[in-house]
Design a protein around this nucleic acid. Structure first.
Lengths: 229, 229
DNA sequence: TAAACTTATTAGGTGAGCCAAAATAGGAGG
DNA sequence: CCTCCTATTTTGGCTCACCTAATAAGTTTA
């Protein structure tokens, strides 16, 4: 199907309006989005051609079964995103709503499903609520730790500087060609996630998990791998 | 400033490429996004005019101080979203990356900051990790509970059907005009969040929290308020 | 029932962001 | 120094999602 963000927005708003008003007309959508009526008329024409909406000239607007499905798909994403932002992260109502409105169009099915499970889990598990309270308290107190961008310049580490249990993403591999090739053959490509799983007594060698399997390299070699975390 | 998604993407990619390559050229960006070189040339022109990028014809591309700031703002959002999706929700690498790539442009400052704190909290608090493990285990086992859209039709409840502690969003208020006006004057407008905080023995009256203050209404009246959760 | 008002449609136009094809610049090797 | 190849720019065109202004269809009301 592949709908644009706008088209999804129109379908979703028709869906919501119909729950409240029984009859939806061009004007309702105009008011909802604050756009020119001409734009809505045009959009309804397009959606009609795609069999997502029924709309005869100067008449009421309705969703087809297909349109309903799409609208529900989008709206269910909206709701879970809103809940997560509002109730778990304690984002303000306005920002939760706006962010949910945008993210609903782009979140993948997998992320959506995992987020549903996460919210479910937080709701049902009793241990979680006290922990969540703890988190909510901590939000207000310490205002630090959050570098929007200013301040420290996000300087990069090298692989040997990562501590046990830490994770990072490979940014770049330095050193001579031979070494670079050898490391890359082992799966160390820029963009790959690594996690340090064991460090020998003197910090050498270092064992890491990469692409699901374990890999051990010498500290000397690790110095050639730039990491960002 | 108000940059479009595309422009933010270009800035971000230049930022990342420069960390890896020292010199960034049109071709690098072409390869990164798989678009025509003409589009990149055009975009660089626009960014130059906005003083975000330095680029002389047929030469190297560099970020100005201002461009660097913007790039870092976007990139820091990317990283935290990726981490959250990948490490907390256990979304696959590909989807985490793609979703982060899109969401980075739209997430509000507040949501971003709260998400940073949340990830921080999860990392530092030791109680959390065991709980997170519990969540991660639960992900694989129960595959249910996640209605993408099919199946149940998201039917709406009425306010009196909400249980203690549950939350919902007001969808619509029915009943005669007088009642509707009275309820709306108390702040019950469509779109408002409510949370049930107390229910008297026979389910009447019902006390709820709405817009920060408490409100008590009769069960009879609550039946007129449609809720979606 | 016709004027007055509201709502919707048509027509024509804009900017963003992409494209293909043609023209041009820069660098490497003969 | 010229030729060839690749990288870049120019040109002209396309779609999407908006817009304004003019027109037409419904609706209300005197």
């Amino acid at each position: 199907m592949e709908l644009t963000k706008s088209m999804e927005d129109y379908l979703e708003s028709i869906y919501i309006l119909k729950k409240q008003k029984r009859y939806v007309r061009i004007k309702d959508i105009v008011e909802k989005f604050n756009i020119a009526a001409a734009s809505v008329t045009e959009a309804m024409l397009k959606l009609s051609k795609k069999n997502l909406v029924e709309h005869e000239k100067y008449g009421y607007i309705d969703l087809t079964e297909k349109g309903m499905e799409e609208a529900r798909r989008v709206y269910s994403r909206h709701k879970i995103l809103y809940k997560f932002l509002k109730n778990i992260l304690l984002v303000s109502e306005g920002n939760s709503e706006n962010d949910a409105c945008e993210m609903e169009h782009i979140i993948s099915k997998e992320s959506y499903e995992k987020l549903v499970k996460f919210c479910d889990f937080v709701n049902k598990d009793t241990d979680t609520s006290s922990l969540l309270d703890k988190f909510h308290n901590s939000i207000d107190s310490k205002e630090g730790s959050c570098n929007d961008n200013g301040g420290d310049k996000m300087k990069n580490k090298r692989l040997n500087e990562l501590k046990l249990g830490e994770t990072g993403i490979i940014l770049k591999i330095e050193g001579d060609k031979k070494l670079r090739k050898r490391l890359m053959d082992m799966g160390m490509l820029p963009g790959t996630d690594v996690k340090i799983v064991k460090v020998a007594p003197l910090g050498d060698p270092i064992e890491m998990k990469i692409k699901g399997f374990h890999l051990t390299i010498r500290k000397e070699d690790a110095k050639n791998i730039l990491i960002e975390d």
